[in-house]
Amino acid sequence: MGKSNSKLKPEVVEELTRKTYFTEKEVQQWYKGFIKDCPSGQLDAAGFQKIYKQFFPFGDPTKFATFVFNVFDENKDGRIEFSEFIQALSVTSRGTLDEKLRWAFKLYDLDNDGYITRNEMLDIVDAIYQMVGNTVELPEEENTPEKRVDRIFAMMDKNADGKLTLQEFQEGSKADPSIVQALSLYDGLV
């Protein structure tokens, strides 16, 4: 993909415009910024974590950033290329609610087996709590990752089998306004 070129080839721009919710001009602008920050044309896990640390200076986002990195890194080569970056950004910032929920499901399904187990969710929720640090005051019933996961599973795990399917996750998330709101945070920002 033209590693350190400051412009993408027209056919690449066209393809990314088809695969995302961005215009050709927006794709070019994002590429310019991506190459400025990642001259090699790729972003590794350490660089990704560094970006998260800028956004969450009062907590430790390392663990959460690693989980997000793994979802962005579609081809699992340990690096995020621009096409992976822009497609994930498109879903998280401008995707439909169902697209965002499928993306979030992939984030929580750490072993990619098609289910979110209690332990997988606990890993992610714990990482989120570490990331936000003491900057967020949580209600008593959610002031630990374990309590939050218990509440989520009580609401979403309809067949009580200890794991969530994509359908259970989507339906449960849509029924909880706070989850829908959290997924909409990026709307309109890009």
Score class of each variant (00 low, 15 high):
Pro139Asp: 09
Asp157Cys: 02
Lys53Ser: 14
Leu107Gln: 01
Asp176Gly: 12
Gly133Lys: 02
Ile35Arg: 15
Val136Ile: 10
Ile86Lys: 00
Gly78Met: 12
Gln54Tyr: 04
Asp98Arg: 12
Asp157Thr: 07
Glu26Gln: 13
Ala45Asp: 07
Leu8Ser: 09
Lys3Asn: 15
Ala65Phe: 01
Arg18His: 09
Met155Glu: 03
Phe34Tyr: 02
Thr135Trp: 00
Pro39Asp: 03
Asp44Gly: 06
Ala160Asn: 06
Lys50Arg: 07
Ile35Phe: 10
Val12Pro: 02
Asp111Val: 04
Lys19Gln: 02
Glu11Lys: 06
Arg148Cys: 05
Phe72Val: 05
Asn70Leu: 11
Tyr129Leu: 01
Asp73Phe: 08
Leu185Ala: 01
Ala160Arg: 02
Leu122Trp: 03
Gln29Arg: 07
Ser184Cys: 06
Thr20Pro: 14
Glu24Asp: 07
Val136Ser: 03
Arg18Cys: 13
Ala127Val: 06
Tyr115Leu: 00
Pro61Asn: 04
Leu101Gln: 04
Glu120His: 14
Ala46Leu: 04
Thr23Trp: 12
Lys174Leu: 03
Pro139Phe: 08
Asp98Ser: 00
Arg94Pro: 00
Tyr52Phe: 12
Thr66Trp: 08
Leu138Ser: 12
Met121Val: 09
Phe55His: 13
Asn70His: 10
Asn143Asp: 09
Lys53Asn: 04
Asn75Ala: 07
Asn112Trp: 00
Ile51Ala: 09
Lys7Asn: 06
Tyr129Trp: 01
Leu43Met: 06
Ser184Ile: 02
Gly133Ile: 05
Gln49Tyr: 09
Arg79Ser: 01
Asn5Gly: 15
Val13Ile: 11
Lys36Cys: 09
Glu142Asp: 15
Glu74Phe: 05
Asp98Val: 06
Gln54Pro: 03
Gln28Gly: 13
Met156Phe: 14
Glu24His: 14
Thr96Lys: 15
Gln29His: 07
Glu14Pro: 15
Lys106Val: 06
Arg151Lys: 10
Tyr31Lys: 09
Pro10Trp: 14
Asp77Leu: 13
Leu89Ala: 00
Val12Ala: 11
Arg18Pro: 08
Asp98Cys: 00
Pro61Ser: 10
Glu24Gln: 08
Asn134Tyr: 04
Gln49Arg: 14
Ile179Tyr: 14
Trp30Phe: 01
Thr144Ala: 12
Val136His: 06
Asp150His: 05
Gly162Lys: 08
Asp60Arg: 09
Lys36Thr: 02
Val190Ile: 15
Lys106Arg: 10
Thr92Pro: 12
Gly78Trp: 08
Leu89Ile: 11
Glu24Ile: 00
Pro139Val: 11
Ser184Asp: 13
Pro39Thr: 00
Glu120Val: 06
Val180Ala: 10
Thr23Phe: 03
Asp161Val: 13
Lys9Val: 14
Lys50Ser: 02
Tyr108Asn: 09
Glu137Met: 08
